[in-house]
Design a protein around this nucleic acid. Structure first.
Length: 670
DNA sequence: TGGGGTGATATTTTT
DNA sequence: TATCACCCCA
């Protein structure tokens, strides 16, 4: 097999199979390429079967890209059964195949974090813990327990303070409710398989026999539970390659344990480490800046990026009067640069720390009629209309899904009010059954008047009919007729601010349905409604439909969401103390993660990088004096070109301006 | 049932 | 200050 278009280090990483391997892949060093080539190599040159290889990523986007790249390089026949998925999808597949051992019934639901929050709210209503803040804390606590493989009993025995006891008991009730609803949460998708593997060695061996080689991407983002899952599946064999970059760990705040990278050394004593330091993305100046910046962080593994793409232009630093001025200047900079260099809008990206920062930029872009693409925002599956239809599907697949039941029982209106639901809930809770089942019980007559009962039963009967009508053959047809029967469109029109909005929302509903149709055609894996619904619960954006026009637009993104992307010309705005690094991180002493965030931003740029900061920024409606970010000071000053700003207020800034002037001259000379 | 007034809130977000 | 969710009243 031909590995000649890889560099020596990449080739080593592909060919090394003698022991577990950690590939430390710097930004833009071609890590996805290494993983995909290695999979091809394992199949073509090592004689492994595709269905015995599992490649794991964190996002659907990454796994989709990986699949696309592999299928471009290898015959489709040889790829049958190759497992490329997210951690959560892998977990879901394990649960599905070992359903009996997990105590779940077919058709189980997956609760998203909103479902979880409202369930927790209901559970803790007796326990003096009702405000949203505390609910969030409990949710976080339960999630971290699961990520550390602690079950309710252990949480209870470990509890020392009163608050821990309360949390542990809520945790226990929460698990019981999930069980009653035949539901699991996102954390369970990893927790349940790991728990099962630990309890039942036969099942573990069965899965070890299925997976002869495992590859994990973005390893610095794994949490404790995911680490354990990999460890169990590998089970002392030499069949593991993980790829990661501790300098790009920016998700510690949501449970990622970047120390898992270092932990590998201890758990796999024959671990091999290969570093990928050649960067294929950026010019030398940008890498020099990135290296210098990240040098301020402590490192377990030293790493220095380099490239042969030439040195490039100085990094511009724009000092602006205020935040509006900043937006104006960034936009006019893009416009004039585009005009001079005849570039596309899509060559530019504007990156920022917080979502709110996009507002002024958006306004400036609109004023200049510049098309832009905002990455992030409310994702498709978060939209109310999509959640509504999804809830219908969930209830049809799993009557016991109370979260979904509550969402749609009176949407569109069926004259089932909160009073009725409260009594129904009480009744169901007393008997430990779901709301749906409770509707059918005779005992209900004593609690509710016949009108309410009729409404409820009308609804459940309608669902039962749908369930019976739907079979996998006519799934889409039945779903479309369901939406018609609901008269959902009328409801949308009545409940939207304008006809245009209503139309857009109905379009989303139709997109959802055609997406289901499409996905069903594409694979036979997710053919039943229940499987389809599970699969969709793990999605957050609608995959782009074929032929959808990719318009030429400026990219706006948070620094977090920009990881993995690259652009010729990058602007990072708001390079100020208290913003980047963020105030909260300064207070918590989390400067290192903020620095990595800045590092991620800097390394997105291929050609040019422009940083901007303002002297005055409106925060919470108040004008606040701002200071330039310490990260600007940490960059190699000779490579910076300061622009704008005439009046220096303090001597330090005077100095800086002197330096900038010098750099300016150098920049002009080079 | 919906519109308007009120009050809380403002870091990052995938599955 | 700007937004948004929520609640109350007509």
């Amino acid at each position: 097999m031909n590995l000649s278009d890889l560099n020596p280090r990449q080739r080593d990483a592909v060919k090394y199979i003698d022991s577990p391997l950690l590939v430390l892949a710097g930004a833009g060093s071609g890590k996805t390429r290494v993983i995909t080539t290695k999979i091809t190599y394992l199949i073509e040159s090592c004689g492994l079967k595709a269905h015995n290889i599992a490649a794991v990523t964190f996002t659907n986007k990454a796994s989709k890209e990986m699949k696309a790249r592999i299928s471009g390089s290898l015959d489709k026949k040889l790829l049958r059964g190759l497992k490329v998925s997210t951690f959560h999808t892998l977990g879901l597949n394990i649960i599905r195949q070992e359903l009996k051992q997990t105590g779940l019934r077919p058709g189980f639901s997956i609760f998203d974090s909103q479902d979880v929050a409202s369930l927790l709210k209901e559970i803790s209503s007796g326990n003096l813990t009702e405000d949203d803040d505390q609910i969030k804390q409990i949710q976080w606590k339960i999630s971290s327990w699961k990520n550390s493989l602690i079950d309710p009993a252990r949480a209870m025995s470990m509890a020392e303070e009163k608050i821990d006891v309360v949390c542990a008991s809520i945790y226990e009730k929460y698990q019981m409710s999930l069980r009653a609803y035949n539901a699991i949460d996102f954390d369970d998708l990893i927790f349940l398989p790991v728990d099962l593997f630990q309890r039942d060695k036969d099942v573990l061996h069965k899965w070890q026999n299925k997976i002869h080689y495992m590859l994990v991407d973005e390893y610095q983002d794994t949490n404790g539970c995911q680490y354990e899952m990999v460890k169990l599946l590998v089970g002392g064999r030499n069949c593991l390659t993980v790829v990661g970059d501790d300098d790009q760990s920016i998700y510690a705040w949501r449970g990622a344990q970047p120390e898992n990278l270092a932990q590998l050394k201890q758990d796999y004593n024959n671990l091999e480490v290969i570093k990928l330091e050649q960067n294929y993305r950026s010019v030398g100046r940008i890498l020099k800046a990135a290296n210098t910046l990240i040098d301020n962080n402590p490192h377990v593994f030293e790493k220095k990026l380099w490239s042969d793409k030439g040195f490039g232009d100085p990094i511009k630093v724009m000092r602006c009067k205020n935040d509006e001025h900043e937006a104006q200047r960034v936009v006019s900079e893009i416009l004039s640069h585009r005009f001079q260099k005849r570039t596309k809008y899509s060559d530019y990206a504007i990156l920022y720390r917080g979502n709110h920062q996009s507002r002024l930029i958006e306004k400036a872009l609109r004023d200049h009629r510049v098309p832009y693409f905002l990455s992030g925002g409310t994702s498709f599956f978060e939209k109310t209309e999509v959640k509504d239809i999804m809830a219908y599907l969930r209830v049809i697949a799993n009557y016991d899904d109370d979260a979904a039941f509550l969402r749609i029982v009176n949407t569109p209106r069926r004259e089932i009010g909160s009073g009725t639901l409260a009594k129904l809930g009480e009744y169901a809770q007393d008997r430990g059954i779901s709301l749906f089942r409770a509707c059918d019980e005779m005992g209900l007559e004593q609690y509710l008047n016949s009108r309410a009962i009729n409404n409820l039963r009308g609804f459940t009967q309608w669902i039962v009919n749908l369930n019976e009508k739907i079979d996998d053959e006519n799934l889409i047809k039945s779903l479309r007729s369901m939406v018609l029967e609901l008269d959902y469109e009328t409801w949308l029109i009545d409940n939207s601010k304008s006809p245009a909005v209503a139309e857009k929302r109905m379009e989303n509903v139709n997109d959802l349905l055609s997406w289901i149709e499409n996905a069903k055609d594409k694979s036979d894996e997710h053919s039943s409604l229940a499987e389809m619904v599970n699969y969709m619960s793990l999605m957050n954006i609608l995959e782009r439909q074929e032929g959808e026009n990719e318009s030429d637009s400026v990219n706006l993104s948070t620094l977090h969401a920009s990881k993995g992307l690259e652009f010729p010309y990058v602007f990072i705005i708001g390079m100020e103390e208290e913003l980047l690094p963020h105030r909260v991180s300064i207070d918590e002493g989390n400067i290192e993660e903020e620095r990595r965030l800045a590092y991620v931003g800097v390394t997105r740029a291929q050609q040019n990088l422009t940083l901007s900061y303002t002297r005055i920024r409106k925060k919470y409606g108040e004008k606040v004096q701002c200071e330039v970010s310490r990260f600007v000071d940490e960059l190699p000053q000779d490579d910076l070109l300061f622009e704008g700003g005439k009046v220096e207020t303090n001597p330090e800034e005077q100095m800086q301006r002197g330096k900038a002037h010098l750099a300016n001259l150098k920049g002009l000379l080079s």
